[in-house]
Design a protein around this nucleic acid. Sequence first.
DNA 1: ATGCATACGGAGGCAGCATCCGTTTTGATG
DNA 2: CATCAAAACGGATGCTGCCTCCGTATGCAT
Lengths: 197, 197
Amino acid sequence: MSAGEQRGRKPRADVQRNRVALLETAQRHFLQHGVGTSLEAVAKEAGVGPATLYRHFPTREALLAAVLQTRSEELVSRQADIEQLHDPVEALEQWLRAMEDYFSAFSGLPDPLMAAARAQEPDNPLTIPCDILISATDQYVRAAQLAGRVRASVRGHDLFLAACSVAWIKGNGTEEEPLDRLRTLIASGYRERDTQA
Amino acid sequence: MSAGEQRGRKPRADVQRNRVALLETAQRHFLQHGVGTSLEAVAKEAGVGPATLYRHFPTREALLAAVLQTRSEELVSRQADIEQLHDPVEALEQWLRAMEDYFSAFSGLPDPLMAAARAQEPDNPLTIPCDILISATDQYVRAAQLAGRVRASVRGHDLFLAACSVAWIKGNGTEEEPLDRLRTLIASGYRERDTQA
DNA sequence: ATGCATACGGAGGCAGCATCCGTTTTGATG
DNA sequence: CATCAAAACGGATGCTGCCTCCGTATGCAT
């Protein structure tokens, strides 16, 4: 009982194997068919029965959260780059784009994310990632507000919602051009009006 | 062939009866369970077989579009009020709220609407209503732009997307307070910065 | 090699979609 | 009013996907 945590017994080998196979297959299917993809199909292609999938991931959201874990780490690494920036507004902007990309990872992803972000469903596996993202956004917002570059009434939560919306629209097949105009519109919405040039 | 359009035969009575029953029941179910409600259940409660429902409305979107027809007329009547206003920005704002209410009629409505508004699926029954709304929005935008009160880069389409997004967020259970902040943010996004007070 | 906890996976019940086709209803006609 | 044909109906059906139960196989420990 000195270093390791294994209490009782060593975990079985097939558990880990199946988990990995499921996650890889699920990611592929989410990418190709969106978050609504057939879980049965995922299980079959991963070479396991449906029960095994449900044992590992009791709900679609749980599977989704696990698959997103990888992507989350990508986000964190982007965050490191962003924090190098001197201009807090630039940083905020890049962070919003990074979140938007994250939300756009799979078609249909914004819906379960929004569902998780709202009224606390504490057992929703997506709630925690959402809360983290909201807090992070709030940090960037506050930094830019301290520099007097972002309106005081803006909250991190608001821009989280905005980024999620843009991702939602993007996922519904709108072209890039209107999307860019919308991003610009949001940006001029949160930026403090320059008191001079 | 003088006045009436009835060519051949008088339409059967049960057709109209069933259509009305289906529309009323569908509206109730959409209200209570969202746009994803079970069509079988609608048919059963309307007292018809599933085939009859599909004969009248070949797709879920067709049924939705027909049910929405009623609400559309409500929107048009709101439009009459709005056109009385002197301030074009006020008019635009009220119009956006009216659209938002319309989009929020049933939970989940924004998704099929967005799907219809994007790349032309000419046979989607929701495409036409969407195009009408976008044009109408563009009218209001242009009027406000002529008065120099809205940024020149804004398009009606952009604010249509924005209103749809807000409705989408609202439908996902977010509270009113963040929603209001988001609306404010969008408003300061499209408004021209006052060159004076 | 044997025992036992652990995990597996197929079978099956359920719900919803969408269609086919035999039957009924309805309006038109004499 | 009786009859006919077109038009519409609706139950039965096949399909897909969700999720769970339970008998069986697997892998770790001794």
